[in-house]
Amino acid sequence: EEERTFTNEEEARKAKKEAEKRGLRVTVTKDGTTWRVRIG
């Protein structure tokens, strides 16, 4: 499991799409101005 943080919503969405392409489970949460993308 890996967690990545982004300040840019577009980049967070891109990371989510890429992980889904690899067949991984992805959770995206917004924490104030930060987007957290949890993969795995």
Rank of each mutant, 00 (worst) to 15 (best):
E1L: 13
E1P: 11
E1R: 09
E2A: 08
E2L: 13
E2N: 09
E2R: 10
E2H: 12
E2I: 14
E3W: 13
E3F: 11
E3A: 05
E3V: 13
E3H: 06
R4N: 05
R4Q: 11
R4D: 03
R4L: 15
R4S: 06
R4M: 14
R4P: 03
R4F: 15
T5V: 14
T5A: 06
T5E: 08
T5D: 05
T5F: 13
F6E: 01
F6H: 00
F6I: 01
F6L: 02
F6P: 00
T7Q: 09
T7E: 10
N8A: 04
N8K: 06
N8H: 06
N8D: 09
N8L: 07
E9G: 06
E9L: 11
E9T: 02
E9D: 03
E9A: 08
E9H: 06
E9V: 08
E10P: 06
E10Q: 11
E10A: 12
E10W: 14
E11Q: 07
E11M: 07
E11D: 13
E11I: 02
E11K: 03
A12H: 01
A12Q: 01
A12R: 00
A12E: 00
A12I: 01
A12G: 01
R13T: 12
R13P: 00
R13W: 15
R13L: 15
R13A: 10
K14V: 09
K14F: 10
K14R: 12
A15F: 15
A15W: 15
A15T: 05
A15E: 05
A15K: 02
K16E: 13
K16R: 08
K16Y: 13
K16W: 14
K16Q: 15
K16C: 13
K16A: 15
K16D: 00
K17N: 12
K17E: 15
K17Q: 14
E18K: 05
E18N: 06
E18A: 09
A19I: 07
A19L: 14
A19Y: 14
A19F: 12
A19D: 01
E20I: 07
E20K: 05
E20R: 05
K21I: 10
K21E: 13
K21N: 11
R22E: 05
R22V: 06
R22G: 04
R22D: 04
R22M: 12
R22P: 01
G23W: 03
G23A: 02
G23Y: 03
G23V: 02
L24H: 06
L24G: 02
R25Y: 11
R25W: 11
R25Q: 10
R25A: 07
R25N: 07
R25L: 09
R25F: 11
V26H: 00
V26E: 00
V26M: 03
T27N: 05
T27R: 07
T27V: 10
T27P: 00
T27L: 07
T27W: 10
V28D: 00
V28R: 00
V28T: 03
T29A: 05
T29E: 09
T29Q: 07
T29G: 02
K30A: 07
D31N: 07
D31P: 00
D31C: 11
G32M: 02
G32V: 02
G32Q: 04
G32A: 04
G32D: 05
G32Y: 02
T33K: 11
T33H: 12
T33N: 15
T34Y: 14
T34E: 09
T34P: 00
T34D: 07
T34R: 10
T34K: 10
T34A: 08
W35G: 01
W35I: 05
W35D: 01
W35M: 02
R36T: 12
R36I: 15
V37R: 00
V37E: 02
V37P: 03
V37L: 12
V37Q: 00
V37T: 01
R38T: 13
R38A: 08
R38L: 13
I39P: 02
I39S: 04
I39G: 01
I39H: 02
I39Y: 08
I39L: 05
I39T: 05
G40H: 15
G40R: 11
G40K: 11
G40Y: 15
G40N: 11
G40E: 14
G40T: 14
